[in-house]
Each structure stands twice: as C-alpha cells, then as structure tokens.
Amino acid sequence: MRNLLSDSAAKFDPARAGEYQEQSRIALAGYDACHELAAAILAAALGTGSRAQVLIVGAGGGAPEISNAHRLEPNWRFTAVDPSAAMLELTRQHLNQAGLDDCTELHLGLVEDLPEQSAFDAATLIGVLHHVPGDEAKVALLASIAKRLKPGAPLILAGNRLVYREHPLLLAAWGNRWRMTGATPAEVEVKLGKILQGADPPAAESTVFNLLADAGFERPLSFFSSLFWGAWIAYRAG
C-alpha cells in the first residue's frame, strides 16, 4: 500500500499545492460548508467541551479540519499526517498564521508510520480516498486508521463517490462550475480530463459503506452531498 499512496501523493507537487485551496473550492461546491459540518458533526459526537486527541489524515492543503474544529472545541489536540511535503507545508503556514501550532503535531508520511495503538478519540479522512487506487488499498488505509482509534471512536470520511463516466450530467455540471469562474471550454476539457485519469472513487455510497465495514467501522451515516462528493460519519467497531 505504501507505494500506491506515495504515487498518489506525488500528484500534489508544489505547483498543484499552490493552487489547491482555490481549485478545491471550485471543484467541490460547498467546500467550506462540508468542512464546517464535519467539525460540527464531530463535536456533536464527542460532546461539547470535550478533550480529545484527533487524527487528521491527508492534512495537507491548509487543514480546515483543524481550524474549524478548534473554533468549536479549543481543548482538542491534533495529529496531522500527509505524505506530500508541498501540501503539508501549506498546512504548516496556515496553522502558523492562525496561531494553531501549539495544538497540532505535523507528520510527513503515512498513517502506518504512526504507532499502532488505540490512542485517538476521533479521526478525519477528507478528500483522500478517491485518490487511492483500488478497493484493497482503500480498505488498507481505512483499517490503518481504525487500528489507531479507540473502540467506538468516530471517523469523518469525505470524498468523491460514483464512477464519473457513468454520470455525464453530473460531469457536465462539474465542468460548468469552472465555466462560472471564467474557464474556457478548452480549459474545462483539460480539467475534466485530469479528473477522469487521476482518481478512482468508490462506485456508489453502498461501496463506501462496504469499505468501511471491511476496515472495521460501523454505523455509517451521510451528512453532506454535492454532485460526486459525499461525507459520512462512522464509528470504529468496539
């Protein structure tokens, strides 16, 4: 699995990292709302005023997971992991500007590089799973997170699902998001071409639920949807 995840991380070079925050908000209608809801759901699951150690997987690109959660629960502490140095540097800069350095530990690498013990009260995996090729590697990543969570701990999972080519209307609407920002038809074609070649999303929400179950999670519940994107909370099986 390490090689597959390293290959996925290689896509996020300094050039792509530099445009990530702007492009992600175009590609995902409701980007900020999804992250805000993720923090709200997680805080509801753990309880207001709780103290928690939270694992943020795929934390590069600014880690709004951390800033949003901290607004609600200032007593939480975060361990942020990402295999892309360029993306993790964006997060380092963002946390420094927001004054959140002291509540976050950054780790360049993979989840499997962390100690394999049930130490975390919660975890997030946002915008990552559809970049991992194949169901076997997806389950392995989810299972590596489960091994580091306490029994019953919640996981926030968000990312694309559905096979892009099987939903041409949604794909065309996705392209129109870029047109709204001034992209030409030729530029839209290039962007959609990269999407079609560069990701392997689960085929359906039922597939997401099966992946979670195979990795040791239960009780998945959807709380956000936007075109191909979905977000869920699930819990490590006790």
Rank of each mutant, 00 (worst) to 15 (best):
S206H: 09
V132F: 05
V208E: 06
N75M: 10
I233V: 15
G127L: 12
L142A: 01
A119K: 04
E112W: 07
L4C: 03
A45Y: 00
F228T: 00
W232V: 10
V54M: 01
N96L: 14
A234L: 13
L142C: 09
I56G: 00
A17L: 08
V188S: 02
S226C: 11
A9C: 12
I145F: 12
P168G: 06
S144H: 10
G49D: 04
T184K: 09
Q23M: 13
P151N: 09
R177L: 15
A153C: 05
R161M: 15
M180W: 08
S50E: 09
H70M: 10
G198V: 12
L149K: 10
D101T: 15
L88Q: 03
P202G: 02
P168T: 04
H107Q: 11
P220E: 09
L212Q: 01
Y20E: 09
T124Q: 04
E36W: 10
A44P: 00
Q23F: 08
A158F: 14
P185V: 12
V128W: 06
V190H: 09
R236N: 02
T48K: 15
G152W: 04
R236Y: 07
R92W: 11
L142K: 08
S24E: 01
S144N: 14
C103L: 07
A215V: 04
S144I: 00
V163L: 07
T181S: 06
Q93E: 10
T124E: 01
A119N: 05
A158C: 13
L106S: 12
I126S: 02
V111N: 06
I56M: 08
L108E: 15
S50Y: 01
E19V: 13
G127A: 02
A173D: 14
L95Q: 08
E205N: 09
A172C: 02
R177N: 03
S50F: 04
V57H: 11
A98H: 07
G60W: 02
H167G: 03
L171Y: 03
P64I: 05
R148S: 07
A98Q: 14
G18W: 07
A140H: 12
R92M: 03
A153F: 06
A69W: 02
L196K: 12
A40W: 06
W232C: 02
L46Q: 02
D101A: 15
R25L: 01
G182M: 08
R161S: 11
A199S: 15
P201E: 03
A85W: 02
G109T: 07
G127Y: 00
L72K: 07
A85G: 06
D200A: 14
S6E: 15
N210M: 12
P74N: 08
Q23V: 10
G47C: 08
G159M: 05
A63V: 06
Q21K: 03
Q97V: 14
G159W: 02
A204T: 15
A158P: 06
A9N: 04
I41F: 04
D135M: 00
T79R: 08
I26G: 05
A45K: 14
E189N: 10
I156G: 00
L72T: 00
Y31S: 05
R161P: 00
G109W: 00
P201D: 04
T104P: 10
L157I: 13
S225K: 13
A98I: 03
H167A: 09
N68Q: 15
S67W: 00
N210F: 01
S144D: 14
C34R: 07
